[in-house]
Design a protein around this nucleic acid. Structure first.
Lengths: 299, 299
DNA sequence: CCGACCCTGTGCATTGATGAACGTTGCGTG
DNA sequence: CACGCAACGTTCATCAATGCACAGGGTCGG
């Protein structure tokens, strides 16, 4: 059903608004940048649809009836609202404020958090929201502005991808485990040990593939879905496991079992949605985080 | 100068509003009754003009960015406002409320006022504004809804004219004047008397013409621009003068000098502007006032 | 009293917006 | 894994909205 008299055409209201303001069709046409014939047609259409005269025509121009004056007030308020809206939206695109949503694998949390805190300190107007979780947050649905992804370069069409840094991994065990089971002599000795792994059969992480090629699945004695929990398990002596190399500094009781292989290192990517990539807020964050880790790396 | 980013196209905002509501281009197109290609073009144009993405495109539809959500809120408010406006305007055209502006020669004030009061009593929602004055209030400029005009039928193009009633005039004098100067014997005796006249040389009122044909201008010893003042002058004995025949009932000290001639009677016309004539408010008043004076005349 | 100017209003040519059709992509389902 | 569905996105033909030109009428100033 289509109710009669519903205002279906907002542009005609805008035209009527200008006519009511200026008092003449010609003046309104000039203000709107259209031909005065168009203005007349808009008014006629609007009045025809409403069934009420909005203006009285006379040689000096158009004067608003009561209905026209009512429309004038409403449209004036609307015009103000839209002007403010335009200002906000344009300012929003240019300024660094509002929410900035970042997502990554929770494995990277320890590394990223200091950087995000520093960024927020530099831009007090912005509120950081850091989202990690078992599922991958999707940029397409507006769930995050920036994602830090690991592994092979993402190739989703609407995402703009930048190389970020390399995530080096180490195969470690806790002192407690080594005291009990000893260190593997070499790679071939690995099947004789227990492993703490991520509970994802079809993980395409290179170190996961590397491990599955050398160690039968029965040795994956502890499976977790959370990196934090995996670390706890390794520290508790559940077995060998892969952790971010940076963690070795913070956990002296972790012992590197065998030398880190280059194939394990997963590149990290800064990913943004193409719709948001141009905004200064996102750009500011990307620039900041790249500079931040360049400094950290060089220091 | 034309500021960039000003929202020049309210229809595009309306389109974006529906997209933000429905979440999909197709849904919005369906709601708007247009093709979905049109919706896409509107969004693209709007985003291009603002320089900010309002939506993130993905396979499941469009989700609003922060800017899009801001627009959604503003446009939602606007839609509500316009809906209410449409309701008010349509109701206004149908109902009998608001101002009702009536204008006439002030000579008719005494006759019209009771009718207008009775009309207002019947329609409490309406506020009567009765405007008399030296100048003629013009319907074209929206100065009045209804005019009561005397004399020959008005023929302005945008006015709709209805015959109302006849205004019978009498040539009278006060008892004081008659006591001092006596009554004229007949028409030919009139130049020997003084006259109270309306101060308008080129009055086309038939009684005025009739008088000027028979009495030299020197005998117009009292000229007034106000009917009320003319009546006062006649009552004070300034001379003979034309008054509405109905006044004889209220002023017993007025004496009819010679029998009223048919040529003096001026027809009265109910005049409305074509733009307002169709409104129920005006129609209600016209119907009421015609019935009112029909009853009065027949009683 | 008259002429110049401004504003409205309308018929006709044109442009820009719209609609239809098709292709593509992603997602869910059996 | 294949299929179907739903949604976006583009291209081309069409049509309605627009702009243009001119006529008509009223007002204002000299």
């Amino acid at each position: 059903m289509h109710r009669v008299g519903k205002l279906d055409n907002w542009d005609e209201i805008r035209t009527a608004f200008q006519v009511a303001r200026k008092g003449t069709v010609s003046g309104a046409a000039d203000a709107l940048g259209v031909h005065h014939a168009t203005v007349i047609r808009h008014i006629d259409a609007l009045e025809g649809r409403l069934g009420v005269k909005l203006f009285q025509r006379h040689a000096r121009g158009y004067t608003a009836t009561e209905a026209g004056q009512d429309l004038l007030q409403v449209a004036q308020a609307t015009d103000d609202q839209f002007t403010q809206l335009a200002g906000r939206i344009k300012g929003q695109g240019e300024g660094v404020s509002g929410d900035l949503v970042i997502t990554s694998l929770d494995m990277l949390s320890a590394m990223l958090t200091p950087a995000m805190v520093a960024f927020q300190a530099e831009h007090p107007e912005v509120r950081i929201r850091y989202r990690t979780g078992d599922r991958v947050f999707r940029l397409e649905y507006g769930e995050a502005h920036v994602a830090i992804r690991a592994g092979s370069m993402p190739e989703e069409p609407d995402n703009v991808v930048q190389p970020f840094m390399s995530q080096r991994l180490s195969l470690v065990a806790s002192e407690a485990y080594v005291a009990r089971r000893g260190l593997p002599k070499d790679v071939d000795d690995l099947p004789n040990h227990n492993f703490v792994v991520f509970d994802n059969e079809k993980s395409r992480a290179p170190f996961g593939i590397w491990l599955r090629e050398r160690v039968p699945e029965e040795r994956f004695t502890y499976r977790a879905t959370d990196n934090r929990n995996m670390l706890d398990a390794i520290l508790a002596g559940a077995g060998l496991g892969f952790v971010s190399s940076q963690l070795l500094d913070h956990h002296p009781d972790l012992i590197e079992v065998i030398p880190s292989e280059d194939s394990w290192t997963a590149p990290l990517w800064l990913v943004t949605h193409v719709d948001l990539h141009r905004t200064t807020k996102v750009q500011a964050f990307l620039k900041f985080i790249k500079a931040h880790f360049k400094t950290v790396a060089s220091s």
